[in-house]
Design a binder for these strands. Structure first.
Length: 864
RNA sequence: GCGGGCGUGGUGGAAUUGGCAGACACGCUGGAUUUAGGUUCCAGUGGCGCAAGCCGUGGGGGUUCAAGUCCCUCCGCCCGCACCA
């Protein structure tokens, strides 16, 4: 009996439910995805990483998309001969675990580890080529203990500061937020309106690296422009000057009945337009500025105004586009060149966080200053005129903000803006009243959080010795397990014994720091820890310097600033502390789009899950009640809109390959995609169709058809390779569809050609549908090993080159015919053939041809 | 306001970077086989037109033998930052 599979009956189906787990075990048993901590010197390493998930309980479609994209890259690069590291872990600290503890009485650790177990099982069902041996969770003491070591190293390296500062306070989460975590004046997680509070906090000195973080963006040529721009804006470099204004003589103030007492001698401002200094008509300070406080101490009206500003603060200001308001303190400052005095106002549009929290107002050349001056009747003096300004030039109605020539400005008159800036800075420096500076928008990173479920900050507060680092032999500082969530606030703080320790320095009773780190700290170095996840030091240099940078990092655009900027900073800080020898953690970054779905609403206005809805030609209806359902917008999947689809249910019903294939085929991965039931069904059909194709590859004896099929096969190899290289997975899918169509259509081709085509199809599709690929490969080539361990296919150049090409023949740029010509046809031959085409003759209408164009292999254009 | 991106059939999207627009898929129409069927197969499917043909990549203009692709201009949508001095 020949060893050919029995012809499949029509309803024979690929049994993915049996096949998928089987191949997952095979990969596991063969150790296909394991790599050493230190790669051999001659290895071409490739590090693929997807942003690790927060263990919320279940995986969602965003995870499926993210990890499928990464898996395609990992499997493809492995086939291309790279030693691929592809690890997975858990970003496991964070507030939801504490909320679960408060709401359900489960301990955060128990809740978190149970979620991890569940999500790990779900990820394993997807057939991802992950090296699970490297797995860790950031809440493992083995991980966060190393993080505490890193922090102490940073402290020694002068990259950590404890300072009192105005912080963003989230009144719902009861914790501090970094600037990056405040979005439109609200907490990024709770959505609560953020308040300002003065607290003593730990800060990581990210600003020390601001110039480098900005400059190095230029070298990240495999990052999306958009992300680089967002980071550049966030870092916010601006060139200008700092200048000091002396407060007007005390006698002057006393005359006005103002007590001077402990007033500062001068006020410092930052400006990007020092050239407009002679157009100054007031000085404005932020409500939190010391001079404002000084005014408040002397004048209850000033205090009232400041209180009002704080109440309005971020919230109303954002909502109503903030009308400009101010309060004249009565103080005056002296202009460094004219000696005239100008009033000092407290103004609600001045930000304490930016520059010095004070500015000089030049209403003639700044929109905000103009608004303010107009409202309070302050002088508006033009000091820059357009080069072609007419007699009627005026800044009374609107400021002039472009380049021009200086006027009314003594030694600056006649200069253009750039020259005037240089000149005025020279003069200020000569008088020691100011200097040219670069100002940064970026603030230091406040990392203290008043939370239990986070990494404890490893320091001890002693009344005598001050802040004392926890000695290395006492690390890790482990979270206590017996905590009480029944009271509001930080459980670490009201734990009966945990915080009470002896001072490591003098031995007297002292207190542990009860704040924990912002969870963004945890995710700022996990990619480095993966290189040697069990090491007794944060990172082992041989491993981390060999594997880093991550060659391809993949995740959501929502981390464009926070996580990515912090990680870039951390890598530099680790370098400064001697742990690594590189600066940039992620050489390549890919930001995927979100997964969306239609939303549905029942008659009573409740949101409905997709599986509750049946779509028919005449509309959408509730499966059980039969009521009509309103189909809403296509939007990002969210629990509140119930427009989610559970990946587990999809894998149950269609298998992992179908889910992966659909998620890749729908559209380009950087765009938002719509999850559609029809699309999944289509992907499933294709999986089964390929399987059926493989069941009977018997062909005919037509060698010409065979050769054509072989050409298609090798062109597909080239095309899919190119598509995968360019992250055009949807195009790769389309090319594989074409090859499947070609095999199906070429039933007259010899069996060998059809087998070759299907083998190629299986191997080209293997990064995307790895299980079916193994299943078919094992029947097509029994005993030939795992596809996961095969090298990538190379196209045969002899088959890529065609003997003839089809040329488009245009007359005056309009398509009139196509001709088939030998690839090496000369211009003369091509033109002769083209001009003989009946349609071409007709279109020429007997007119002489003035010009003939032949682009080899593409087009002929005849100009009459 | 500033910065960035995008507009291609009923839908998602292709288009070797200036060279046959609409690959591939979804959907739809017709047919065949099967039918418990979200099965399978065949044909068709940008618009107008009986046809030859004409028109077509948000609108208008331009460069070019040739424009979805380059330039100018207008419109629309999306995203980011937002009183940043």
């Amino acid at each position: 009996m020949p060893d050919t599979p029995a012809p499949a009956s029509l309803d024979a189906r690929y049994d993915f439910r049996a096949a998928e787990p089987r191949w997952q075990q095979e990969w596991d048993a063969a150790g296909c995805f394991r790599v050493p901590d230190v790669p051999p010197a001659d290895a071409r390493k490739y590090y693929v990483l997807e942003m690790f998930p927060y263990p919320s309980g279940k995986i969602h479609m965003g995870h499926v998309r993210n990890y499928t994209l990464g898996d395609v890259v990992a499997r493809y690069k492995r086939a291309r001969g790279h030693l691929v590291m592809h690890p997975m872990g858990w970003d496991a600290f964070g507030l939801p675990a504490e909320n679960a503890a408060r709401e359900r009485g489960t301990h955060p650790a128990k809740w978190t580890y149970a979620n991890i177990a569940n999500m790990r099982a779900e990820l394993k069902r997807m057939g991802l080529s992950l090296e699970w041996e490297r797995e860790f969770a950031t809440c493992d003491p083995e991980y966060y203990g190393q993080q505490q070591k890193l922090f102490l190293d940073f402290l020694r390296a002068g990259l950590v500061e404890r300072k009192e500062s105005w912080v963003n306070w989230d009144p719902v989460d009861n914790t501090v937020l970094a600037n990056e975590q405040v979005i439109d004046g609200r907490g990024w997680r709770s959505g609560a309106v953020v308040e300002k509070k003065l607290l003593s906090q730990w800060f990581l000195s990210i600003t020390k690296f601001a110039p480098d973080l900005l400059e190095a963006l230029g070298g990240l040529d495999r990052w999306p422009e958009r992300v680089k721009l967002m980071q550049a804006n966030w870092i916010g470099r601006s060139e200008g000057a700092r200048l000091r204004f002396r407060l007007a003589p005390v006698s002057n103030h006393e005359k006005m009945g103002i007590q001077t007492g402990d007033l500062p001698a001068d006020v410092e401002v930052f400006t990007t337009r020092p050239d407009t200094l002679f157009g100054m008509s007031f000085l404005a300070v932020a409500a939190e500025h010391p001079l404002a406080a000084a005014a408040a101490a002397r004048n209850p009206d000033a205090a009232a105004f400041i209180a009002e500003c704080r109440a309005m603060g971020t919230s109303e200001a954002v909502i109503e586009q903030a009308e400009k308001r101010g309060f004249d303190t009565g103080f005056r400052v002296v202009h460094p060149f004219t000696g005239e005095t100008h009033p000092v106002w407290i103004a609600n549009f001045v930000l304490m966080e930016y520059g010095t929290g004070a500015l000089f107002g030049c209403p003639g050349h700044d929109q905000r200053d103009h608004d303010f001056a107009s409202k309070y009747g302050l002088p508006i003096i033009p000091v820059v005129k357009p080069k072609d300004a007419g007699e009627d030039f005026s800044v009374a109605k609107a400021p002039f903000t472009e380049d021009g020539l200086l006027v009314n400005s003594r030694f600056l008159d006649g200069l253009d803006v750039a020259a005037a800036k240089r000149r005025v800075i020279e003069e200020l420096e000569a008088k020691a009243q100011g200097q040219g500076v670069v100002n940064w928008r970026l603030r230091d990173w406040g990392v203290s959080r008043q939370r239990y479920w986070g990494c404890p900050i490893p320091v001890i507060h002693c009344d005598d010795c001050g802040v004392v680092p926890v000695p290395a032999d006492q690390l890790p500082v482990v979270l206590p397990e017996d905590v009480d969530f029944s009271r509001p606030g930080n459980p670490l703080d009201h734990h009966p014994s945990w915080k009470h320790v002896g001072c490591p320095s003098c031995g007297k009773p002292a207190r542990r720091e009860t704040d924990t780190f912002d969870t963004f700290v945890d995710s700022s170095w996990y990619f480095a820890r993966f290189c040697s996840p069990r090491a007794g030091v944060p990172v082992t240099p041989e491993a981390v310097n060999a594997w880093l940078p991550v060659d391809q990092y993949i995740g959501g655009i929502e981390h464009a600033i926070l996580h990515l900027l912090y990680s870039r900073f951390f890598t530099r800080a680790m370098r400064a502390a001697g742990h690594v020898t590189l600066d940039e953690p992620f050489a390549g970054l890919f930001t995927q789009g979100m997964v969306q779905h239609e939303s549905y609403k029942g008659a009573d206005g409740r949101w409905l899950y997709p599986e509750e809805v049946e779509k028919r030609a005449d509309g959408a209806f509730h499966r059980e009640t039969g009521e009509a359902v309103t189909v809403g917008r296509i939007e990002s999947m969210s629990k509140s809109k119930r427009n989610t689809v559970d990946p587990g249910a999809i894998i149950d019903r269609f298998g992992a390959d179908t889910a992966r294939w659909f998620i890749l085929s729908d559209n380009p991965p950087e765009r938002d995609m719509e999850w559609s039931e029809a699309g999944v069904a289509g992907a499933s059909r294709f999986i089964h169709r390929v399987w059926r194709l493989a069941q009977n590859l018997d062909g005919g004896a037509d060698e010409a058809v065979g050769r054509k099929l072989r050409q298609t096969t090798h062109r597909t190899i080239a095309a899919v390779t190119e598509a995968l290289e360019g992250f055009a997975f949807n195009v790769a899918v389309a090319r594989i569809h074409e090859l499947a169509n070609a095999v199906a259509d070429a039933s007259a081709a010899p069996r060998a050609a059809r087998e070759e085509a299907l083998e190629a199809l299986v191997r080209l599709a293997s990064p995307m549908m790895p299980h079916l690929a193994e299943e078919l490969w094992s029947t097509l080539r029994p005993g030939a090993g795992l596809v996961a361990q095969l090298p990538w296919l190379e196209p045969d150049p002899a088959l890529l080159a065609a003997d003839t090409v089809t040329l488009a023949v245009q007359v005056l740029g309009k398509l009139r015919a196509t001709i088939e010509v030998p690839v090496d046809a000369t211009d003369e031959q091509v033109f002769a053939l083209a001009e003989a085409e009946p349609n071409v003759i007709r279109a020429l209408e007997g007119k002489p041809i003035r010009k003939r164009i032949h682009v080899k292999g593409r087009v002929v254009n005849l100009v009459a």
